[in-house]
Simulated assay, not measured.
Amino acid sequence: MPPIDQWVAFEPLAGSPVAIAALLLAALYLRGAIWMWRHGRRWAIARTASFLIGCALIFAVTTFGVNRLATESITALVFQQITLLTVVPPLLIAGSPGRLLLRSTPHTGLGRLVLRAAHAGLRSPFWSAALHPVVAIVTAMLLYPVLYLTDAISVVMRVPFGHDALLFVVLVLGVVAATPLWSSDPLPRVPSFAARFVDIAVEIQIHAVFGLILLRTSTPLFSAYANPAGGHDPILDQAIAGALVWTYAELPLFVVLIVCLSRWRAREVRTSRQRQKVEDAELDSYNEYLASLSRGRNRS
């Protein structure tokens, strides 16, 4: 694996267009947050910080030395992919960009068109289908076992701008897959907690199997990385990538699993209390009815 100083070296000329997109997103979000604060409307600083940290991570993994090393080290590429697929999306989604868009966009001029597009998206069958829990499972399959174990990743990395396109696709699919699990914004589809639990459990298994294959395989799996320019051991590089999948990629999934289970339990407790209140009210009403009957017999 390349030395750590090469990973953190700032190389703006080696940056991806995704890094520019991250700066643009951060600027647009800050504009909306500042507009809310100037007009005396509440907008949580924690949400703002979460979104900006997500944008900063996008910029870092697509601009620093790791972006250049991703063309010669599978560990660097997997690190980029895990960050954009599983670490960044929850941070962006926790910032509630959709809610900020609806609250801070003016209702005149261009703002009206933006709001119409946003409301159309909420009613769109396409986005409703895209937010189905199965999409997250399919995304994990395509971006790990299918992309890597067929060595399609070597083809992608050899195509001009293939690396940049891969980073963009990974980020978009990561956000789409994570939205039903993390979002508190209005959505065209809200999956059940049972569906979310199954989704997370399957994704964890996909990561575990893929990471184990990388760790245990004693021959190079990827032709584009079989003879690295840096002269490092491709088998060791491959094994380290597998260790990243087992640890770095799994941790966010375990976090969202805990969050999902806690929210599920909280909803069940709330529903149980509401049901108990209704049953208690019905019982009180019935007891009052029996008491009125008893008073009637006593009068007679």
Rank of each mutant, 00 (worst) to 15 (best):
V135L: 05
A76N: 05
I82V: 14
L91K: 00
A76E: 12
Q276V: 07
A14T: 09
Q80V: 04
C260V: 15
T247Q: 14
T179S: 10
I34S: 14
R68K: 13
R158I: 07
L85T: 01
R112G: 03
I4V: 13
L28T: 06
S262Y: 12
A26S: 13
V159G: 02
I213M: 15
G296N: 07
S128A: 03
S73P: 09
F10Y: 15
I258E: 11
R267H: 11
R112V: 03
S294Q: 11
G40D: 11
S16G: 02
A118N: 08
A229G: 14
D280Y: 12
V61A: 11
T63Y: 10
Y144E: 07
G242H: 02
S104V: 04
L52S: 10
F222Y: 06
R297Y: 08
V114A: 06
L167G: 00
Q80L: 05
L110R: 14
V209R: 12
L257G: 14
A49P: 03
G15I: 02
F168E: 01
A117Q: 12
L24T: 15
S50E: 10
R273H: 08
T63K: 06
L293H: 05
E72L: 04
P145M: 09
H232S: 05
F222A: 00
V135A: 01
E279M: 04
H207W: 07
W37L: 14
G111P: 01
I240Q: 03
L102I: 08
I74K: 00
R99G: 00
I74M: 09
L173D: 07
P12N: 08
Y148F: 13
V138F: 15
V169K: 15
S294L: 11
D185S: 12
R42G: 14
F10N: 11
H119R: 15
T75Q: 11
V134T: 06
Q205T: 08
F210E: 01
L85P: 00
Q81K: 06
T62W: 06
D233I: 05
I204G: 08
L283I: 03
Y29W: 09
I206M: 02
S16K: 04
F10K: 07
I137G: 01
V146R: 06
L166V: 02
A33Y: 12
R41H: 14
A26P: 04
E268D: 09
A14Y: 09
V269L: 15
F126N: 07
R38Y: 11
R297V: 03
A46L: 10
I34D: 15
G109H: 05
W43I: 14
A249G: 03
A70H: 06
I204A: 13
I20P: 01
L69I: 08
I240M: 09
R299P: 00
A21V: 13
M157F: 06
R68I: 10
I20L: 08
I137H: 02
A21S: 09
V138L: 15
L236E: 10
T86N: 07
